[in-house]
């Protein structure tokens, strides 16, 4: 398809003798939510880290809007529009929820070297921060210091940080992990709302959520792409069932519940 915004070709990463990602080729499209499934150690987080620049590729290339970005640093990738969230909550414990998001939004503000101007005077940045908090449902907790938030709220803040940078591509590493049922439902709604305007790569173990929101699903096993396709195709694939879901079909169980 021509509207692919982020593509990888033969992307590989090895740690010593272990191929954590082996010749992975995927495409992310604007308006599509692309879910990544696979057992632990399949290379899902490695792939996210390769795309965000925190890991260097051993081989292969990454293209963003047509440009080769394989060698770009994480901060450059963020500035050109690739945002991410972490599996393990990675926020600023020293600050309030608002300041967490304000700082994230500030990274898009070119006038940061005005050292004599109070940062709170940049209305655009503050508004972007408030919007991000609102999007994840944390607007009533904006003045709470980050460690005072519940685990689920910290997970929401994690997503809000990524949103505050107004990215085109969102790499979300298990956003629902540790969330209560209600928070998870809200997050699924949020993901659905974000999908039309973003290209999203979602790593998630919650099958209900994945099949509820994904447009495309890629299944990885041992660092390799096993199969990629629409949810119905993945659900029906005998290869996926055999390799990942088991003969009894854990997936079938999810369908019924």
């Amino acid at each position: 398809m021509s509207d692919a915004i982020l593509t990888t070709h033969g992307l590989s990463r090895s740690f010593g003798g272990l191929m954590a990602a082996s010749s992975v080729s995927i495409e992310l499209h604007r308006g599509k939510l692309h879910a990544l499934l696979g057992p632990n150690g399949a290379g899902k987080s490695t792939l996210i880290n390769l795309l965000s620049g925190e890991l260097r590729a051993s081989a292969g290339e990454i293209r963003y809007k047509g440009d080769d970005i394989t060698g770009l640093s994480p901060d450059r990738r963020s500035r050109i529009g690739i945002g991410r969230s972490y599996q393990k909550t990675n926020i600023f414990p020293a600050f309030t929820a608002f300041e967490n998001c304000r700082l994230a939004a500030q990274s898009r503000e070119p006038r940061t070297l005005r050292v004599f101007e109070d940062a709170l005077r940049f209305e655009g940045v503050c508004t972007a921060a408030r919007r991000a908090l609102e999007a994840v449902g944390l607007d009533n907790r904006s003045d709470s210091i980050a460690p005072a938030l519940s685990h689920g709220e910290q997970r929401q803040l994690e997503i809000a940080l990524a949103l505050a940078t107004a990215p085109d591509v969102l790499l979300l590493d298990e956003p629902l992990a540790g969330m209560g049922a209600e928070e998870a439902m809200r997050m699924v709604e949020l993901l659905r709302g974000l999908a039309p305007r973003h290209a999203i790569l979602l790593v998630e173990h919650d099958m209900d959520a994945v099949f509820a929101v994904a447009n495309v699903i890629t299944v990885m096993v041992n660092g390799q792409v096993l199969e990629s396709g629409e949810p119905a195709q993945i659900r029906a694939s005998p290869m996926v069932r055999a390799a990942y879901l088991g003969e009894d079909g854990a997936l079938a169980g999810y369908e019924q519940s």
């Binding site: 994480p74 990675n90 020293a94 940061t112 050292v115």
Partner: peptide, 25 residues
Amino acid sequence: TLSRSSFGRALQGIRSNEERMRSLG
């Protein structure tokens, strides 16, 4: 004044969580 400016707050962000500052751009 510096500590309240965008620049100063970014420095405090680096002190709090350097990795995340980098991934935020």
